Amino acid sequence: MDEHSLLALVLYALIACCGIMGFVWLWAHKIKNAGVVDIFWSYNFPVIGIILLLFAPGFETRRLFICGMVILGGLRLGTHLAVRIIKHLDEEEGRYKQLRNEWEPNAERKFFWFFQMQGVSNVLLAIPFFISAINTDPELSVLEYAGVALWLLSVTGEAIADKQLANFKKNASNKGKVCDTGLWYYSRHPNYFFEWLMWTSYFIFALASPYGYLAIISPAVILYLLLKVTGIPATEQQSVRSKGEAYKKYQASTSVFIPLPKKK
């Protein structure tokens, strides 16, 4: 595949993701809820997967594996978020409400560019998908099978963590309490851990292709975002605001990220 064709695939993905985020911003502006960006950030990865499945010239079986993982993983997470967010569409999530307050009086304009950067991040993080989908080698590597196995583990773990949290919140008697059951007994953010593990699986899969080492960018960026930017810091700040001392006690006794035995 020549450089021009690769750039064309990247351009298709960029136009699609940023275009979708433009429409999502219009919706978010109308309903005054920027939290819907999370839904479509997840759904944008299946969009990229479909583009690569249709237009990338790589070995078909490899494309089916990588694009299938991307499509299924993105649809699962996006639908989980959609179910959660749409139930409370008239109530903006605390971390976005905080951003809105900090960005006033130009909050909507800043949210537009924030949404566009989410679309750009979709394409940047898709580096493993591009690398794998343009590989024409007709033989699959043990690294690719290992990537698929790790992906199965990670998507299952994330789905279990999400389900456990959703079930906890469904119980009215748990209102105002901290979820510390199941995987949440061992980690404050098992869903984030398995999400990162999923991106690691894409990296391992891409290592079987030329320049696959460049795919390390994706799990590295995801880990940085989860640990330092929009993931754990924002989530924990909101949890402390809403649950106070109960959450601080939970912080003191559990692992922040990797599921580990409870602290004594």
Rank of each mutant, 00 (worst) to 15 (best):
D2G: 12
D2V: 00
E3V: 11
H4F: 13
H4K: 13
L7N: 12
A8M: 13
Y12V: 08
A13S: 15
G19S: 07
H29F: 12
H29P: 00
N33Y: 09
N33M: 11
A34E: 03
G35I: 08
D38T: 02
F40K: 06
F40A: 07
Y43W: 15
V47N: 10
G49H: 03
I50T: 10
L52Q: 09
F59C: 07
L64H: 11
M69I: 04
M69Y: 02
I71M: 14
L72W: 12
L75F: 14
R76W: 11
G78Y: 04
G78L: 03
I85E: 10
H88K: 14
L89D: 01
G94R: 09
K97F: 07
K97G: 15
L99F: 15
W103I: 07
N106K: 14
N106G: 08
A107P: 01
E108Y: 12
F111S: 06
F115T: 02
L124K: 05
I127Q: 05
I131G: 00
N135C: 08
E144Y: 00
Y145K: 02
Y145H: 05
L150N: 00
L153E: 00
S154Y: 04
S154N: 02
G157C: 03
E158I: 05
A166T: 13
F168D: 03
K170E: 15
K175P: 06
C179N: 08
D180M: 10
Y185R: 15
S187Y: 06
H189M: 07
P190K: 04
W196F: 11
L197A: 12
S201H: 04
S201F: 04
L207A: 00
P210T: 06
Y211L: 15
Y211D: 12
G212W: 02
A220L: 15
L223G: 05
L223A: 13
L225N: 07
L225V: 12
L227C: 11
V229K: 13
T230W: 10
G231Y: 07
I232R: 02
P233T: 03
T235W: 09
Q238N: 11
K243E: 10
Q251I: 03
A252T: 06
S253N: 13
S253F: 00
T254C: 12
V256H: 09
I258R: 01
K264F: 09
